[in-house]
Nucleic acid binder design. Sequence first.
DNA 1: CTACATATTCTAGCATTGCTAGGTTTTTCC
DNA 2: GGAAAAACCTAGCAATGCTAGAATATGTAG
Lengths: 202, 202
Amino acid sequence: MLEYVAMVREEAGDRIARRKARDREARRERIVGAARRIAEHEGWASVTVRRLSDEIAYSQPVLYSHFESREGILAAVALEGFRELGPALEKARSSGSRGKAIERVAGAYLKFAESSPALYEVMFTLGLTVPFGDAATPVELRSAFSKLVQLFEGRKAKPEIVAELFWASLHGIAELTRTRRFPPAWQKERLRVLVALFTRLQ
Amino acid sequence: MLEYVAMVREEAGDRIARRKARDREARRERIVGAARRIAEHEGWASVTVRRLSDEIAYSQPVLYSHFESREGILAAVALEGFRELGPALEKARSSGSRGKAIERVAGAYLKFAESSPALYEVMFTLGLTVPFGDAATPVELRSAFSKLVQLFEGRKAKPEIVAELFWASLHGIAELTRTRRFPPAWQKERLRVLVALFTRLQ
DNA sequence: CTACATATTCTAGCATTGCTAGGTTTTTCC
DNA sequence: GGAAAAACCTAGCAATGCTAGAATATGTAG
């Protein structure tokens, strides 16, 4: 009997704890969302801790109960980016003829970078604490990269190396376009030549 | 006679003016040099206006008589980078057999990026005010790029597009290596595959 | 040589930033 | 109801880029 009461109490406390955890998670997402939105509209320089605390209507220390530092918030946005890039590439790869998979993936990659410049920027600008190969590297990063590797499996050249090169080319194009080194007008032709390069390669 | 005296005076004033201009230029170069050195040793975050003013033993406002802002100093360093990259690529291209020009240039590019990471970073991280094609773009930038275009002249595909792609690939490799996305160990093999890609291309 | 004018440099401070210590309020639980 | 714990806020620190205004050095003319 005593145990039963204790159980109910426990469950009640659990419900409250769960609700709190939900609320906390929701608030965390609001922070990340606000950071991403502001960055996309006004650039990362406008994403200040004060601005974010205004946006979510909490004081600054609350942000630091969710993240270690401002950079921690940027890292969270970057992770969100990889969490979206991976599936986008996978969808492009698997839907359609196998022969044109490279073309579709390249197109999807550049479209992603172009449609969310600030997001793409933070995904690669941010200093990685650990090397990419390290076990501590978030699964989202490795997962996104693995979609590229799958494109080149079963060839002569090592798939990882070719995939890295493919990634580097796409990243180079994305970066040089974002920072206005490349005129956006020729993007289609650039894509055409790039695809030709990596399709012929055996 | 009066004119003669005036002339002597003029010339004396000229000498003084020239000396002042020389001193000013020397001081400007010390600022840029200090910025580059600090960045290469401690990262760009350590390149503060106060730190630079300490380094050259002048007060902060003096820096602002040479540059509009802190970013102006970074831009000067970036320009210095392009002023070195261009000749480095040209030297690699012209010295040696024509058949291996692509390989040499690619190697020189990656070596440049690897040996001065902070310099390379500021050359591309910095927001360009005007698009690359614009007439206001410094000649150093266009000159460096033209070395890449020369590699692909007289082919089927448009040389500019291929050169852009070549540049993008190199930049991608450099960036992803610098930010630890790529393990440096496989750099040789990456270079090998890259060269194979762009050599076969007609 | 002196006194003025101009150019050069410095002192001191402002506003904004990331971040945090300490106190205050709210919530939870018996 | 009242203590313990959790959640939150106020207020402030140190560092940053940048600048107004005072102070000093430098060149010029009488």
